[in-house]
């Protein structure tokens, strides 16, 4: 079994590394700094850390003001509050003004677990994808999280980085990461599985199931939802018989929609989306929720088979 790590820990470590190198890095949080791990930065660089209390809207605006004064502002909270509670601030102040604010959210998706629906952001990618100028990254493991944070710090303008709560296995230790360039983790010519976040691992496991049944699945880690790597999608469309998207998010508005939008315009290949259907989450252990909402390797494999007949 590969190493299990919190992506949030990698975020905290990345912030400290960035903070050491660049005095313009500032970090804001809204009373969740222990959970998001921004407290690690706060301990090391207290003068550059601003806990804004339980006030996400003000946090986003303050981050915008800091960015407008030359700072690279990282603002963190849970996904549901960062994307939901403060949406207008993100839209009108951060994105419209193209400010250098990196919104790094944790506790995205249903694997938040027992806290239940109010804390499970399943529509945040859709909300962020609706805003011009916003780039969106959904890392699949801890090392990629670190690379994504570094890349975002160098990329001017707003970026939304979506992390989960649970420990996740390390899939790939390579340090090659480029915003907007998907990674093909597994080659295959029968079907393509395009996934992001924790669903990349599920996709790889799904591909193993398919392999035993004589189906070769290509697995793409689409860590960047915007800018979307259209070339990789087109290659999947050209070289395989169908595309299945997988995300821990509503099937509407997120990765599946983004891929469907590309495919609809070229009318090239059949596709199906694995994700959360149009309903809210609920309390439960992450493993049970994954099963309940059919975000499993088995369902991915089954969906692939159904698609390519």
């Amino acid at each position: 079994m590969s190493e299990m790590r919190y992506a949030r820990d990698a975020y905290g470590e990345a912030l400290i590394e960035l903070g050491e190198k660049n005095k313009d890095i500032v970090v804001l949080d809204a009373d969740l700094s222990g959970s998001t791990r921004t407290a690690m930065f706060g301990k090391k660089f207290p003068e550059r850390f601003f806990n804004m209390g339980v006030a996400e809207q003000n946090m986003m605006g303050t981050a915008a003001g800091l960015a407008a004064s030359g700072k690279i502002a990282f603002a963190s909270t849970f996904a549901i509050f960062g994307a939901g509670r403060a949406w207008d601030q993100v839209r009108n102040t951060i994105c419209y003004n193209q400010l250098n604010v990196k919104i790094v959210v944790t506790h995205a998706g249903i694997t938040v677990g027992p806290d239940g629906s109010s804390h499970q952001a399943i529509e945040d990618i859709a909300l962020m994808r609706a805003i011009p100028n916003m780039n969106i990254i959904v890392p699949c493991d801890a090392p990629q999280t670190k690379e994504a944070i570094f890349a975002a710090s160098k990329s001017p303008g707003p970026v939304y980085i979506r992390l989960g709560r649970a420990k996740i296995p390390t899939l790939c230790n390579d340090r090659e990461f480029e915003i907007g360039r998907a990674r093909v983790l597994r080659q295959g010519d029968d079907v393509s599985i395009i996934a992001c976040g924790i669903m990349v691992r599920q996709a790889l496991l799904g591909a193993e199931i398919l392999e035993k049944q004589g189906i070769n699945a290509r697995v793409v880690d689409m860590h960047t939802i915007r800018p979307l790597d259209k070339d990789v999608i087109l290659e999947c469309a050209n070289k395989t018989k169908g595309i299945v998207t997988c995300e821990e998010h509503l099937v509407s508005g997120g990765l599946g929609s983004a891929v469907a939008e590309v495919l609809a315009e070229i009318n090239a290949v059949a596709m199906k989306r694995v994700g959360i259907p149009g309903k809210f989450g609920q309390s439960g252990d992450p493993e049970n929720l994954i099963k309940e909402y059919r975000l499993t390797p088995e369902n991915i494999a089954e969906t692939c088979k159904g698609l390519i007949g």
């Binding site: 809207q57 605006g61 981050a63 003001g65 800091l66 960015a67 407008a68 004064s69 102040t93 003004n97």
Partner: peptide, 25 residues
């Protein structure tokens, strides 16, 4: 104009960020 506006109630936060940056620097 450093930062645009229009959606009400947001400007004091933006000014606060600018003030914090000035203090930091």
């Amino acid at each position: 104009v450093d930062v645009g506006s229009g959606s009400l109630g947001q400007g004091l936060s933006i000014a606060l960020g600018m003030a914090l940056a000035a203090k930091l620097d």
